[in-house]
Amino acid sequence: MKHYKILAILFGIFTIMTIGCEPDDICPESTPTTPSLIIRFYDISNQENKKNVFKFRIQGVDNDAPLPNYNIVTTDSIVLPLKTDATSTQYKLHEDYTYNDNGTPDDTSDDTIGGNEDIITINYSTEEVYVSRACGYKTIFKNVTLTIEPDADNWIQSKESLTENQSVEDETAAHFKLFH
C-alpha cells in the first residue's frame, strides 16, 4: 500500500511539473519574420501582361556579388530584402547581362560587363513589431517608395505602387509593378 502512495505522489509531482513547464523557445519556421519587397515585371505595351526579363541579374549598389538566385536568370518577378538598419536600399537591375573576363580570370582590369543596368532606390520608414518571445521582433516597412534612377538608356520604363502609402508587412502579394 505504501508503494501505491509513493507512486501516486510521484505521479502528482510529474503532472504538476509537466503542466508548469514552458514550451521550447524555438521560433517555428512557419512564423512570418521581416518581409521582403516583391516586384513583378509587366509589358509596357500591354500593361496587364507579365513580361519576363532575360539574362537578368541583381546586385546591391556597392556590392559586386549578385543577389542569390538572381545571377543571369529569366524571371517575371523578384523578391528583394530591404535593409532594416537604414531607410533606403539600392539595387542594380541588369537586363541582358553578360560578363567577359577576356581569358584572364585573375586580372579584373580587362573585364567587360554588357547589358543594360538600371538602378532602383527604395525608400521607407521602419517599425519594429513584437512577434513572440521565441521569435523576438520583426521589422515592417512603411511609406515605401520606389524610384528608377534616370540614365541615358533605362530599360525600366515606369513603375506602379499597388497600394496608396505602400507598406511591406508580409510576402503574400506583390508591392510594385515595373514596366519594360
Rank of each mutant, 00 (worst) to 15 (best):
N100M: 03
A86D: 15
V73R: 03
N69M: 14
L93I: 10
I72D: 11
G103A: 05
K92V: 13
P68T: 06
G115S: 08
K92T: 10
I78R: 05
T75N: 07
I119Y: 03
Y99A: 10
T126W: 03
V73L: 03
L93H: 05
I120E: 01
T87D: 10
G114V: 00
L93P: 00
S77Y: 10
Q90S: 14
T112Y: 05
N69E: 15
L93C: 07
E95M: 09
P81D: 13
I113C: 11
T87K: 07
D107N: 15
V79M: 14
D76R: 10
Y91S: 10
P105E: 05
D85R: 13
T89A: 06
S88H: 10
I78E: 01
D111P: 08
K83W: 10
Q90I: 02
T121W: 00
T126L: 04
N123K: 11
T84L: 10
G103E: 03
T121G: 01
K92S: 13
G114E: 00
V129D: 07
Y124Q: 01
D101W: 09
H94A: 13
T89M: 05
N100K: 06
S88L: 08
Y99G: 04
D85I: 11
R133Q: 12
N69Y: 12
S88C: 04
S88K: 08
S77K: 13
V73E: 01
T87M: 03
D106Y: 13
D106R: 08
V129Q: 13
D118I: 05
N71W: 09
T104S: 14
S132A: 06
K92N: 14
H94V: 11
D76W: 06
N100I: 02
L80V: 05
S77H: 12
D111Y: 07
T87I: 06
S77C: 04
T89L: 04
Y70W: 07
L80P: 00
G115E: 01
Y70E: 09
G115Q: 04
V131P: 08
Y91N: 10
T104R: 15
T126A: 04
E127S: 10
E117R: 14
D106M: 12
Q90N: 11
Y124E: 02
N71E: 15
T104G: 07
D107T: 05
I119C: 01
E128N: 14
I120H: 00
K92A: 14
D111C: 01
